[in-house]
Design a protein around this nucleic acid. Structure first.
Lengths: 228, 228
DNA sequence: GCCGCGCGCTAACCTGCGTTAAGCGACCGC
DNA sequence: GCGGTCGCTTAACGCAGGTTAGCGCGCGGC
């Protein structure tokens, strides 16, 4: 599950151990961690899609990142602080709750895991940077194309792509909040991408007909994902 | 310079040692690290303002974060990877170059520094999240107000605020690229903020007349900065 | 098996911000 | 001291994307 880096079997075993304890299901639209909580646990997404989001007093919502199976919620949470945003389930989700001292112990026992956490962190920040660039400077169609490329590669990395199609369980309003637009415009843009023959989206599944074309349309450069 | 956390004098001394070696001046508008470099060193900003940015083939530029004196460029760079963005000087800058093995050695010698690096990382990601929320869901005037609040508090934290005024050495085109807008509209928005009596901006210095008002205007909640 | 609600989809209209353009002043290099 | 470039400012105009509204459908709850 963790990064494509050298990990001894014992390291994997240690991770497995953490992931198996305290597994918890979360219903769609429920918060995993609330916006003003004093979070104690780190969470590992085992199944389903979640997101970090920030909610403004007037109701506007900004989805700040998407969390897919295999993603770790807050490696740095060990260093405690009040939450400034929330983590919510977009679909039905199952998460593993991991206590900070467990992480600390695991890292001390198996130093390679510390390296893993740093890599995880590095990837997270790279992803966030690309999102800022997207929302800041890409047009509507570029944003959506870019997001689809990103999701495809991230899901493929953890074995959740089925050929050229991936699950796409999020609603159009969700996409809108993630891309800084309205659901109406997301719908228009989807129509355009379909019309261009780049994708098909039906029944919560996205099929990418032309990945190269989609990448070009979204100014997508996979470097930031740090794939193998 | 580093986070407001318990640091033994020896820890500070170790940091100081790193910061004093290989100090280098960088001219305004020059890159500190290029967009496709294979970066070897971490950089610490000692003076001046820099930014991370991503440049698209057609010339569009997205500034993805602002780096102020005291900011560390890439604690995680130890874990090598090709750059997917660039770091550039906005003003004349002086940076300290720090080799990865120096960081490694320092961390092993003084474990408290590892904690520092994690905190730095935590703050960086929180900042990036807030920027995504800004560009995604805040209006032009809210974005600018929010950015000014953020910069004021970040500079005050390192002793660079002079009462209610701070240096503001960046151009309007720079602000535009940081906030995902055009310089023309930045100019309009500045006029509005001035007109509302919230700020004054003259000669590369920003005076905040009404911090509370500015915070309200920018939907600013300082929680994400993790101040004392 | 029915009801209600949320989502997908579309259309018509509106506006915040982008675009283009132009004048002016400060700074820089020669 | 002079010309060129870049940033600031404003104005006029255009458009990408927001807003509002309305319909149909699928799904979950009871």
């Amino acid at each position: 599950m963790e990064r494509h880096v050298r990990l001894a079997p014992e390291d994997r075993a240690a991770l497995d151990g953490l992931a198996r304890q305290h597994v918890r299901p979360v219903a769609p639209r429920q918060d995993i961690v609330g916006q003003h909580d004093d979070p104690y646990h780190t969470h590992l997404i085992l199944d389903g899609w979640a997101c970090r989001y920030r909610q403004f007093p007037d109701g506007r919502r900004a989805i700040v990142s998407l969390l897919l199976p295999g993603d770790l919620c807050d490696p740095g949470v060990t260093r405690r602080a009040r939450m400034d945003h929330a983590i919510g389930a977009l679909t039905a989700v199952t998460v593993a709750r991991i206590a900070p001292d467990q992480i600390g112990a695991a890292v001390r026992a198996r130093p390679a895991l510390d390296e893993c956490l740093w890599l995880e962190m590095r990837d997270t920040t790279a992803l966030q940077r690309e999102w800022i660039a997207s929302v800041g400077r890409r047009t509507a169609i570029e944003r959506l194309a870019h997001l689809f490329c990103e999701l495809y590669l991230r899901l493929a990395r953890v074995g959740l792509a089925d050929g050229n199609t991936i699950p796409m369980p999020v609603t159009q309003p969700d996409l809108a909040d993630a891309l800084g637009q309205t659901s109406v415009h997301i719908n228009r843009t989807l129509k355009a991408l379909r019309g261009a023959g780049l994708i098909a989206l039906r029944g919560r599944r996205l099929t990418i007909h032309d990945l190269d074309g989609l990448m070009k349309r979204g100014l997508f450069d996979p470097a930031y994902l740090h794939l193998a």
